[in-house]
Amino acid sequence: YKIYPYDSLIVTNSISVKLPKDVDRTRLERHLSPEEFQEVFGMSIEEFDRLALWKRNDLKKKALLF
């Protein structure tokens, strides 16, 4: 996945969300650098992957990456 800054990946309720063209809309968190991922989620990507799907989705919603 290509890395993008968190600010360019957050999704708000506005209709005209302009995400970069090559971003996987269903896995926005994968486009964060490991350092920024840790900062946003408070855990590593590996720890995040071990969580239940509902928990990952809940965290993504709170981080505006859903």
Rank of each mutant, 00 (worst) to 15 (best):
P5V: 03
F41S: 00
D58G: 08
F66C: 13
P34Q: 14
R27V: 06
T12D: 11
R30M: 06
H31V: 01
F48L: 03
P34A: 13
S8R: 13
K21R: 11
F48M: 02
T26C: 15
W54C: 12
R56I: 05
S16T: 13
F48D: 00
V40L: 07
M43R: 04
V17C: 15
V11E: 06
L32E: 00
D24W: 04
E36G: 05
I3E: 08
D24H: 06
V17D: 15
E46Y: 10
V40D: 00
P20N: 05
F66Y: 15
S8D: 12
D7V: 15
T12W: 15
L9K: 00
I15C: 15
R27Q: 11
D7L: 15
L28H: 01
L53C: 15
I3Q: 08
F66A: 08
I3H: 07
Y4I: 06
V17R: 14
K18N: 15
D58T: 10
D22S: 06
D24I: 06
E47T: 10
L28K: 03
Q38I: 10
E29S: 01
D58W: 13
G42P: 01
I10Y: 04
K21Q: 14
L65P: 01
L19V: 07
L28M: 05
S16C: 15
L64Y: 10
T26I: 06
S44H: 11
S8N: 09
F37G: 00
P34F: 11
N57Y: 08
I10H: 04
D7G: 11
L51A: 04
K62C: 08
S14P: 14
D24C: 11
D24F: 05
L9A: 00
E39Y: 13
R27I: 05
V40T: 06
K61F: 08
E35T: 12
S16G: 13
S8T: 13
Y1M: 11
A52G: 09
W54S: 12
K55W: 08
I10W: 04
D49L: 07
I3D: 04
P34D: 10
V23L: 06
Q38R: 12
E47S: 10
K18S: 14
E39M: 15
T26E: 14
R27T: 06
S33E: 04
K21E: 15
F37A: 02
P34T: 14
F41Y: 01
K61S: 07
Y4F: 07
R25V: 15
D58K: 12
D49A: 07
K60Y: 02
L19W: 09
K62P: 02
A63R: 06
R56A: 06
R50E: 14
L28S: 02
L53Q: 11
S33H: 08
N57E: 09
Y1P: 15
Y6F: 03
E35H: 10
F41P: 00
N57F: 08
